[in-house]
Design a protein around this nucleic acid. Sequence first.
DNA 1: CGTCAACATAGAGGTATGTCGAATCAAGAG
DNA 2: CTCTTGATTCGACATACCTCTATGTTGACG
Lengths: 123, 123
Amino acid sequence: MLGQDTACCPGLTSSPLDEDQAADLAKVFKALGDPVRLRLLSMIASRGEGGEVCVCELTPAFDLSQPTISHHLKLLRQAGLIDCERRGTWVYYWALPKTLDRLATLLTTPSTASTASTAKTPA
Amino acid sequence: MLGQDTACCPGLTSSPLDEDQAADLAKVFKALGDPVRLRLLSMIASRGEGGEVCVCELTPAFDLSQPTISHHLKLLRQAGLIDCERRGTWVYYWALPKTLDRLATLLTTPSTASTASTAKTPA
DNA sequence: CGTCAACATAGAGGTATGTCGAATCAAGAG
DNA sequence: CTCTTGATTCGACATACCTCTATGTTGACG
């Protein structure tokens, strides 16, 4: 998801998106378009670069059933925003900052681009 | 939409979002979660700072009815991403970069924040 | 005033999304 | 092996969303 060809692109404000780029990006933004998923992602991402969170820590933070949380985590994973691994009884999730960086670059407007254009994940 | 209290916030990856912040942000991301709206926004925003686009230029770029385009423009406007004005027979739309910048800052991860954190629209 | 063109709004229909309970799978303890 | 706990998958249902056609509204022009 979100192929390489969209990774290089300067931003929404520079040139109109073509249909394929828009479709790819829309999937990621749609994944972010739910308050539960936004909170889940922020809870996971705020653990830092190598940080992980167990599902058993995430679930009680919401007034939702466990299957529902699991469903939202799945969508975030399909959007390329997080990934997970099972270790014993528990499943741990971590953030994939590359996707977030890509979106941030895309949303950066020319006025702010002068300071942020060099932030395209050094490699 | 997207009150001032969320404007100051460092980013998704720094600390977990509370419920209200997540709800506000989700509305904006949801507005971006459709390929048609993404393309509309990019067509409008790529006109630059003072640029404007007439609806009559936007509609023929899509294989959709005119009311459908009007509907999507309304959602983008309600999300605070664009605004419009009627001048004579035509209606002109322009982008509101402040909202985009806010999202970009929010999505910026610590590794890239060193170069982009000062990009919060100088005033 | 009447008419026409550009946009917006209203309502309807089909599809997707969010949520749940129940069932299922995975791993460890006894 | 069986039982318990953690997590995902499945099936169902209510709601939201995207799209259309039909209708309103606004302004320009005779």
